[in-house]
């Protein structure tokens, strides 16, 4: 564990809590992509099949937190506040995201066994899971401020992991190419959003995109 990884995990957890808080307090999931949130559940469940293999209390606790938090988000969006879900704006064709990730999992896992293939799938799937949400923001041309904070926390997390990977390469000689390449792609996807967030949301303005 190092400071970058801890900050990244905290940022990731904060993102999930922010989203649940937004949905619960506004009693609405307007502007949120159920497709992205469903992909995250798939990501966490496929990656954390090793949840019963003990690494540390922290590791197990965080895995449980991510699975339960993302599942609760999907539950609220798909059932409790379903009437507020803007299905017509959540129109990104997700199979174009899922199929290449399945292909990558079978073509380039570290080892050929079910757990490794699912782990590889989860890493690639996570890297592009935010696409439907960013697509929705682009399509409607706006995001509520708390949704922007959520996206910023979620985007920061993989960016901080890049610093963690640099640190681990230097200090521990540890390299995980699949995580690094997918993590860089994931972070790059947020660049446009980061720019808008810093130039608009931090200055107290709403995230309205130019038409």
């Amino acid at each position: 564990m190092n400071i970058f990884r801890l900050a990244a995990d905290i940022s990731h957890a904060v993102a999930i809590v922010l989203l649940l808080y937004k949905i619960w307090t506004s009693r609405s999931c307007a502007g949120l992509s159920l497709k992205s949130q469903s992909l995250y559940v798939a990501v966490f469940v496929s990656r954390y099949l090793d949840i019963f293999r003990f690494v540390s209390f922290y590791n197990t606790f965080m895995k449980l937190f991510f699975i339960i938090g993302s599942s609760a988000t999907v539950y609220l969006m798909a059932f409790k506040f379903k009437h507020t879900y803007q299905k017509e704006n959540d129109s990104f064709p997700v199979l174009y995201l899922i199929l290449p990730c399945i292909a990558m999992a079978f073509v380039l896992p570290y080892e050929y066994n079910p757990v490794e293939i699912l782990w590889t799938f989860s890493i690639w799937q996570e890297s592009v899971a935010i696409f439907p949400q960013l697509f929705m923001v682009q399509k409607t041309g706006e995001a509520e401020s708390i949704t922007s904070h959520y996206l910023f926390a979620l985007g920061s997390y993989r960016g901080l992991y890049i610093l963690n990977w640099i640190y681990r390469y230097v200090v521990e000689d540890h390299v995980d190419w699949i995580s690094i390449v997918a993590g860089v792609i994931q972070t790059v996807l947020y660049c446009d959003f980061f720019y808008l967030y810093i130039t608009r949301v931090i200055k107290g303005r709403k995230l309205d995109l130019p038409a």
Binding site: D9, F66, D176
Partner: peptide, 10 residues
């Protein structure tokens, strides 16, 4: 190593 045991990150 690249075995599953090295996937200690979240």
């Amino acid at each position: 190593g690249h075995s599953h045991d090295s996937h200690d990150e979240l």
